[in-house]
Design a protein around this nucleic acid. Structure first.
Lengths: 334, 334
DNA sequence: CTGAAAGCGCTAACAG
DNA sequence: CTGTTAGCGCTTTCAG
């Protein structure tokens, strides 16, 4: 079975392909009658636009590319849903790529998307990304770009951010109020602003309470379960904190693994707060306090910013989505 | 900044675009020297193939479309990783779509992929899909198609399956051995073979032990947490099972929610086994016994089958990936 | 081994 | 309101 093209429709209707093309596009310069005729014929013949040909001709497509570290993280999958929620009804489709936290894969994904002439790119950077030429290239080529969550500030584009600072600040304040005395921080790569802000929120809270900010209590290279475990083991045998604010839930999970192994009771002897509110946070034992990010909301904002950019309405907008602390067993008042 | 085309390279090198095209494609009919020359120039000028133009000309692309119910399910995200593992090095790229368990969105996703001239489609059906014309259309149009996990048998294409039957059989056998007497089943839509097989594995085990297969103990419309909860509440106040084998972990979670609410102790008074081994299974309290599916392995098989199909090597191959029962607290021997 | 020429399906001036 | 024409960037016969 061969595909039906606008030429086939044109022949059937004894008009030109241009007319069909215009009619299908809803161009008002073609009579309502022809438009209806074309629409009917198109449906009858099972016509389906060849977006490839259209994209080639127009030099751009209605496909938006999206690059995220991992699609199976609660936060990212919700952002994706939010983006689809806005993009699909607006007539755009979405191509999702995973960088897997690898800089190389991130670059390759962007190259692939460019080769596919996407109409714009949405990205949340990999943890390992420390060079940003691939983003600058997009800006130079005037490809609409929106960064979210893990962004690089020096790139000129719209950015949608979580209120990492406030989330971290609230989490740390809460640990202090709960009576913990030596509160440490297990953070992610400080080359990413998102993690830097979590650190800053943490230290602001510590300082405000007149506690010493002890750099020995701060670790910044760990957001996996494994690294959380290793960090906790190390900390317990040296600086001996009595609480840890972790920049991620998986990392907090690793910390709790270590505490269980050492028979240290959570929350009685040790407080833990995570970040991201992964589904397991409310299910594990003890249930894990965590900072919730509104991924879906962020996704809708990201998509709206992208559409505005494509339509040439905005250049650079920065929005901050509030975060919320959810207190559970892992940090309950002593 | 304009994109560099093969014409630009051709002009610089004073050859024709055809030669450049051939050289870039590694055609041996062009001299090694020119090939090297072209390659060097291309790199120097920052050339990047316009896959859109190529796809239009060739009538197909090296992009593979993939449609799954949800990307944030442990199993599906692992299948995706497995698919990427094989597809990317082989020069294909992947477009991922979510049906969100909606038949309409599934159809739309396929239309979108077709409009984008994908080279093939990989799909795991939505729970609500009961009409399969959209798949038949692909077969009729000779679009390479691979179904996995949730497949429809009547469509002629490669299928990669989990050993749902055996997983369910082992899970149920284990519940019996653990001493539970009235073992029910909470399953998914029986229009999907995957869920039918889980039911069949369950009933085989029940029969083998000489227990009665009581259809009142079987529910087949529930795989979300909420529906698991509702089903359990209903069952507890009527047929009163003392164990449930659930066709999904989220559903098992809902069942446990209900048991906690009713103060029924797991596993002492009631046994629960799930399916999929979601990350939360080993973290929740009680930890959840579950049947593990090897998503990554399945993904690699799926991708290999797709590549074979594209290269015209195979027509229809059916593979079954083994599943494994992981026993945890929720069903420990009494 | 390389060039010339045609065309994939669609859109967008330009003309009428 | 509709037709004519040209061309997006690439591949692929067909020649030579």
């Amino acid at each position: 079975m061969k595909r039906v093209t606008i030429n086939d429709i044109a022949k059937e209707l004894k008009v030109t392909p241009s007319t069909v093309s215009r009619a299908l596009a809803g161009n008002t310069r073609v009579s309502v009658k022809t438009r209806e005729l074309v629409a009917a014929k198109a449906k009858e013949m099972g016509y389906q636009q060849n977006v490839i040909a259209s994209a080639l001709r127009k030099g751009k497509s209605d496909t938006i590319g999206m690059v995220v570290p991992r699609i199976n993280r609660h936060f990212f999958s919700h952002v994706i849903s939010g983006v689809e929620e806005i993009l699909n009804p607006a007539g755009y489709s979405l191509v999702i790529c995973q960088s897997g936290e690898s800089f190389l894969k991130e670059q390759k994904a962007i190259d692939m998307l460019l080769a596919n002439q996407v109409g714009g790119i949405i990205i949340s950077l990999s943890e390992k990304t420390k060079c940003f030429d691939h983003l600058q290239k997009l800006v130079d080529r005037n490809i609409p770009l929106v960064q979210f969550d893990r962004v690089h500030n020096e790139i000129s584009c719209s950015k949608i951010l979580n209120d990492n600072f406030n989330g971290a600040y609230l989490a740390t304040k809460h640990l202090i109020k709960s009576g913990y005395k030596r509160i440490g921080h297990v953070g992610g790569s400080q080359s990413l602003k998102a993690y830097r802000e979590r650190y800053l929120g943490y230290s602001k809270a510590i300082e405000e309470e007149g506690l010493p900010v002890d750099s020995a209590l701060v670790y910044t290279d760990a957001i996996t379960r494994e690294s959380g475990y290793n960090t906790a083991i190390k900390a317990l045998s040296s600086v001996k904190p009595d609480a840890l604010f972790c920049a991620g839930d998986y990392c907090a999970l690793g910390v709790i693994d270590a505490l269980k192994e050492k028979n240290i009771s959570v929350p009685d002897e040790f407080g833990v707060v995570g970040f991201a509110n992964e589904p397991f946070a409310e299910l594990m034992a003890p249930t894990l306090s965590s900072v919730e990010q509104n991924g879906f909301e962020m996704g809708t904002r990201v998509a709206s910013a992208m559409i505005k950019d494509i339509e040439g309405k905005y250049k650079e907008e920065v929005e901050v989505i509030p975060t919320r602390l959810i207190v559970r067993e892992s940090s309950w008042n002593k």
